[in-house]
Design a protein around this nucleic acid. Sequence first.
DNA 1: CTTGATTATGAAATCGATTTCTGCGACGCT
DNA 2: AGCGTCGCAGAAATCGATTTCATAATCAAG
Lengths: 327, 327
Amino acid sequence: MATIYDVATLAGVSPATVSRVFNGRAVSEDRAQRVRDAAEALSFVPNRTARTLRRQSSEVIALIIPDIENPFFTALARAVEDRAQAAGYSVVLCNTDDDPVKEATYLQIAISENMAGVILVPASDESDLSTIIASGRPVVTVDRTTAFDVDHVMIENEPAGASVTAALFDAGYQRIACIAGPETVVTAIDRARGWRSVVERRGNYNPDLFVRSANHRLDGGRAAMAELLASPERPDAVVATNNLMGVGALQVLNEYGLTPPAFGVGVIGDLPFTTLSPGLVTLVHLPTRDLGTTAVGMLVSRISGHREPARTVLLPGELAAAASVRS
Amino acid sequence: MATIYDVATLAGVSPATVSRVFNGRAVSEDRAQRVRDAAEALSFVPNRTARTLRRQSSEVIALIIPDIENPFFTALARAVEDRAQAAGYSVVLCNTDDDPVKEATYLQIAISENMAGVILVPASDESDLSTIIASGRPVVTVDRTTAFDVDHVMIENEPAGASVTAALFDAGYQRIACIAGPETVVTAIDRARGWRSVVERRGNYNPDLFVRSANHRLDGGRAAMAELLASPERPDAVVATNNLMGVGALQVLNEYGLTPPAFGVGVIGDLPFTTLSPGLVTLVHLPTRDLGTTAVGMLVSRISGHREPARTVLLPGELAAAASVRS
DNA sequence: CTTGATTATGAAATCGATTTCTGCGACGCT
DNA sequence: AGCGTCGCAGAAATCGATTTCATAATCAAG
């Protein structure tokens, strides 16, 4: 690989001049042209490692997510990447598996690789951001909150949980259960709270008997749904607080011969890869793209030196109610 | 952030000694302990950028895939990450969107960031690997071939296409169409060839009228399926050469009221997020995990200096035939 | 015509780690 | 005792770019 010195030698100038040409500083036109020709001839590409070491900052953004196999997060990643690319940054994607240790490792790597900034979906509400914050690198959290004072983009979770539950009541279901995510994830807690508030108002049963906590994946949804179906207080509908648990629940229902609308299903999140007829499942569409682009926007403004108190952006979900087939 | 010099000063030794302690070279025990204590006190973490610059190689592997929203590739990414982590490497994930320009950019970044190696799912059979190969960085291609002589892991595509088609004939379907991926992707070509070979042997129709080329995503499958259903030569079954096109086809069939087994469906790939009853769709399960772990294994051995002619590993798919409900 | 300001340029310092080179002291062998 | 070997440790070079600093040349203003 050709270095800046090779280019300088070939063009008959100093390395400093070569650097200036590539960074848009004042260089006389004839020299600049000689440099460009030399660089072309040697197919010179600046070494990012050296640049990063000197500049103390790279053009790479870390996107740290809990589960790369969840379409919600890949859609987020997609949005983040598109927007970051447009702003001149590359994105590296890191998967924590909801493991705080992995998360800490990736945050450490972000620091020691001098990355420009971090977009983080925290593994839990106890994720430790103190090190990365102390390092001065900008951080934006997305989708889930922590106790730390950083820029944040999230969804209006409680209203999402409430509206999907209300829609199921409206459709005529009477005993609506809830498959909630892990208790360490605020998103799950808030959505379940939304469900609970509506049940307390409109339901004629004890919510505590109708809620199951599960991991945020397919098998979590499956297990919880099976449990609900086996319980003596059998529900006639269910709200899943994320997409994959929703799919798991639908799979189990299908195995029991209970497809919607025979059994009501509400999901907070989208189901991109299912083959269900549209309109049978009540769902809250989440603004994944907005989530990602907003986060990148905030991060980039911080990277360019923006100093202000941390901001929080709340984005609403959009209810897509199933037809009220039960009425 | 504390540097190696800070640690050296605090411990009363030279920076070289600090480096040696962290890299397992001979250092007397008392000094080593002083260094460790100092590092602990300053919460020192080595700067990877500086290390990479000096070593001319980082501990980061680039995984470049065409579509991060396709569960096949995210499962691959998952496998790659797990295995790489175990071998002491981090993985950065790059999404090319099947765009050769984006792909070239990421390959260039891999070089100029001094990454340890690249695992690549080529965007097309014309992807240009000459630059990355010339750079001396190890490359392993996965799933799709190119004309370049590099280590490669792929699936036995033609047999996969043949077996799924044969299974549909066995189940009693007679006019089996094919939704094939883009013509620039060898995987798609080979799988379609497998379908064709069986049709030529067992079908009583002209294969050319029953094949549609589509993009590898949901909408590609949907469009192709709709077209097939509207054609005068209407098929009674279809083979989709990848997972997402399969889902798209199933969605359209569902909208037409044609769910399997009324209409036969074969898919090469897995359908993790569907809610179909198992056993209705004939599919070829792909060894995604093996694909990823094998690729990492080959790459790591190259990184550690293994010199030998490029190897190709072929992994078989596994047929899961639907019950022959038509017979 | 001088002086101060401005511009273009190269030399050299810098980022933070690794690694080579060099030297010192201890040890073993004859 | 003398010589070679070995191990440990520090000084300094190195990776490749950016950036500061110094300098020479050019220009404008008085």
